[in-house]
Amino acid sequence: MTSIFTQAGPLRAGSREYFFWLHPEWWCKALCGFAWVVMLIHGWQHAGHEVHDRMTFSQELGYWMLMCAAMMLPLVMYQVWLTAAGSLWTRRHRAIAGFLAAFFVPWLVLGIAAVGLRQSSWKYGYAIPAIAFLSAALWQLTAAHRRGLIACHRTMPLAPSGWRADRDCLRFGGFIGGACVWVCWPLMLACTFAGHNLIALAGSMFVAGTERWRFRPRQVLLATLAMAGYYSVLYFAAISSRALP
């Protein structure tokens, strides 16, 4: 018979092995979980004064990338799985690594710009996140945002082996990362200016997931406006407290 029907060495298909076979993207989920744990600890340590929290450039950039991993990886888990499933079995993890490496490049570029902006002293207040969330709500009404959202669902053919396979994984990851940045950049900037506040992170995650998986523009818009309102209230509360004798 053919090589396909030929049995090779012994295989053990216990529950654990079967789980890892079924979910080759398991370590991507673990990475996402780790990022959430770090962000939760950070949010817990700076609860209540995240907006005023000043960090060095490298620290801020590190938290930006962790925030991207925590919030964006769940949204592209299907594409990660698709990359693994479309690759030869022996190179499935390499394919995932290539996809993720390229996926995070656009986020890193935006992160450098965002952290550069964040370093300015006038960014440490409630007005900036409120304006950023309002901008995010307005961005969701545009046709460009809708086009980006559609592009997030794009798939690309992957070569099975050789340098072409690596190139295709990088290209696929880069394309999805670019589309992801195009759709979510105002929300992520708002989260950064909110000092990685957990409410902002969870709210933005909800918005991004809802608009990606269940396209309900009105609810998504309302959720983003609610976050803009939340930071507006905080801003005016801060002003009024300063005005008190």
Partner: peptide
Amino acid sequence: SFEVHAPTGPALLRA
């Protein structure tokens, strides 16, 4: 046409 590789993962086994 394309190259066909021998399976090395779950295709070796049907549960």
